[in-house]
């Protein structure tokens, strides 16, 4: 079961305007930067992108924002991304902001065949508008529905030909849940290895969730907030 493709172009085969994508990463940590660059090159438009953030102005999903390729963002955090905030406030781009834990769980649910679940997060806030409320153990919860995507695009540290993946550090974040929730899941990895080279005890995403895998040509791995202490 060899899932290896030649690169991001082959991995994105079949992508069309108007599709829904999930993209892993938290800030710029663990984002599929090679595939994002290819999406910019392909110029696909009217995308719905599910991703915790939208990169920064000139990197990550910010590149797709610049080219106005995204019709709708489903995220939890805008933060310091000025263009994201501006497109949202002007109404040029539709944005659905949802609590980060609900976002993670909605992706997990989508991949796990659970159509919806109740969570206390967002009760009594704008997020709860139009959602069913039910009380469990004396506490109100809101109904959140599962999310799936036409393409889920994740980034891992190591992967093998069967699509088994291992992530590094906090670059794991949303990648494992999104990998589960794609009709087609693309994994770009820093290091592509032969089956058997990864210890089965330490696989984070089992290959069953991955359809196409390639080794990224280069990873810039930009740091958003370089924070250090002086050597004494």
């Amino acid at each position: 079961m060899n899932k290896v493709v030649s690169g991001p172009q082959a991995a994105l085969k079949g992508i069309e305007d108007g599709m829904t994508l999930m993209l892993g990463g938290f800030g710029l940590c663990g984002i599929p930067e090679n595939t994002i660059a290819e999406l910019v090159k392909l110029g696909v438009k009217n995308l719905t992108c599910i991703s915790n953030n939208a990169g920064v102005d000139d990197f990550g999903l910010g590149l797709l924002l610049q080219k106005r390729q995204i019709r709708k963002m489903i995220s939890s955090y805008v933060g310091e991304n000025a263009l994201f905030e501006q497109l949202m406030l002007s109404g040029e781009m539709e944005v659905e902001l949802i609590p980060q834990g609900s976002l993670a769980e909605r992706c997990r649910a989508g991949g796990a065949g659970i159509p919806a679940f109740f969570t206390p997060a967002g009760y009594g806030t704008e997020v709860a508008e139009g959602k069913e409320v039910r009380v469990f153990n004396g506490k109100p919860h809101i109904l959140e529905s599962a999310l799936t995507a036409d393409y889920a695009i994740v980034k891992a540290w190591k992967g093998d030909h069967l699509g088994n993946l291992i992530y590094k550090g906090t670059a794991r974040n949303f990648n494992p849940m999104m990998a589960m929730a794609g009709k087609i899941t693309i994994a770009e990895v820093e290091e592509l290895v032969e089956p058997g080279e990864l210890d089965p005890n330490f696989i984070h995403t089992p290959g069953i969730f991955v359809n196409r895998i390639f080794q990224g040509e280069k990873f810039e791995k930009r740091i958003e907030q370089r924070t250090v202490r002086a050597r004494s």
Partner: peptide, 13 residues
């Protein structure tokens, strides 16, 4: 608009 990030999950629980 900063977004709620994880704050809504944190304060709810």
């Amino acid at each position: 608009v900063k977004g709620m990030g994880g704050a809504m999950d944190l304060v709810a629980s």
